[in-house]
């Protein structure tokens, strides 16, 4: 059962990767692509596949796996099925950082101002959440909510004063997308994301123990403070970098753990890997769908699509919780 879900999610991810390379607004047959990749020198196929679709696919994979993994960690840590990677304020910190870069025009002078400041924002938000929220799960959630509010207010403030072009660009960025991302975006996100994953991977044992509640977990020698800190660092690095590179992509981190949990016997540690794989598959499949679902020829933004698809799931989750809650 457990190996099965890992295999299924890995297979789903493989299919998603292939589709992500194959599908686009311009159709290219696998033979064209193979030909383009094997002959030296730039041609249309290699340009589109290597410079457009490949970085987009890799970034989608990194972002999706990050969201799935950190969603699973946070739901385990907070023992709250509605927890998502945005809960600790990291995403909104990243959003504020990137929006500030766009607002002050840094983004037009320096290509990477937005993702770089996004990361700075994510780390600053995580630091703030930790400073106010350490020492307890509830205080951590509350501090995260406060930091999220602060980031959101900052974004609104920037929108308030932004000239029309900047406001348009900010809106576009906030919607979340991996369209037309470059290898440079991948390079920027790549060092931090696996670092974050590593930190999150170390939380497994503690998350399992937390299935017994905080007191029993502590009695089993799990340091809750350290567990919270490691989880926060992992989320800050990986979600911060992912949000900075791709904007805010909602619901994947919420949904992915739920999809795999029943198959691993609800054990928090064992949801981590399949949830990461499923998250990556979800983001890539949603991105492929976003290329096909066009309105007036224009792509629907990835973040908009995941929200549209994810919201009904959220309603379902609420209904189910209402039915099973005592």
């Amino acid at each position: 059962m457990r190996a099965a879900i890992t295999l299924i999610s890995a297979a789903a991810l493989a299919v998603a990767v292939v589709l992500s390379i194959l599908v686009g607004s311009v159709w290219m047959s696998p033979r064209d692509i193979l030909h383009g990749l094997t002959t030296p020198g730039p041609d249309l196929a290699s340009l589109i596949v290597l410079d457009l679709r490949a970085p987009r696919t890799l970034l989608g994979l990194l972002v999706g796996a990050t969201l799935g993994l950190s969603g699973a960690v946070l739901q385990g840590l907070l023992r709250n099925p509605l927890a998502d990677p945005g809960l600790l304020g990291v995403s909104s910190g990243a959003a504020f950082g990137a929006v500030a870069a766009i607002y002050y025009g840094l983004a037009s002078h320096f290509f990477f101002a937005a993702p770089l400041l996004g990361m700075v924002g994510a780390l600053a938000a995580a630091g703030l959440t930790y400073a106010f929220g350490r020492g307890g799960t509830l205080s951590m959630i509350l501090a995260g909510a406060a930091v999220s509010g602060l980031g959101g207010a900052g974004v609104s403030l920037a929108l308030n004063f932004a000239p029309i072009n900047a406001a348009y660009e900010i809106m576009t960025w906030l919607q979340g997308s991996i369209t037309d991302k470059t290898w440079d975006h991948v390079k920027l996100a790549l060092p931090l994301i696996p670092l974050g994953w590593t930190a999150l991977g170390f939380t497994g044992r503690g998350l399992d123990a937390l299935a017994l509640g905080e007191v029993q977990a502590a009695s089993l020698g799990v340091s809750l403070n350290r567990l919270r800190l490691v989880a926060l660092i992992g989320v800050a690095l990986s979600v911060g970098a992912a949000t900075a590179a791709a904007g805010a992509i909602g619901f994947v981190g919420l949904v992915a753990p739920h999809l795999v949990r029943p198959f691993v016997g609800h054990q928090p540690r064992r949801t981590l890997l399949p949830s990461a794989l499923f998250g990556a598959a979800l983001v890539l499949l949603a991105d492929v769908a976003s290329r096909l679902l066009r309105y007036n020829g224009e792509e629907i933004k990835l973040g908009v699509l995941t929200s549209l698809v994810g919201t009904p799931f959220f309603f379902w989750l609420v209904l189910r919780l209402r039915r099973t809650a005592p």
């Binding site: 686009g24 607004s25 311009v26 589109i48 457009l52 025009g105 369209t179 020829g297 224009e298 792509e299």
Partner: peptide, 29 residues
Amino acid sequence: TLDLEQLLSLKPQPDVLLYASGEPGGLAG
């Protein structure tokens, strides 16, 4: 509407590509 993939696949390829730059000190697209 023309996305990056379609732009790259235009046949024949246009001679020049023009794109908007922002006001000085302001914002680009």
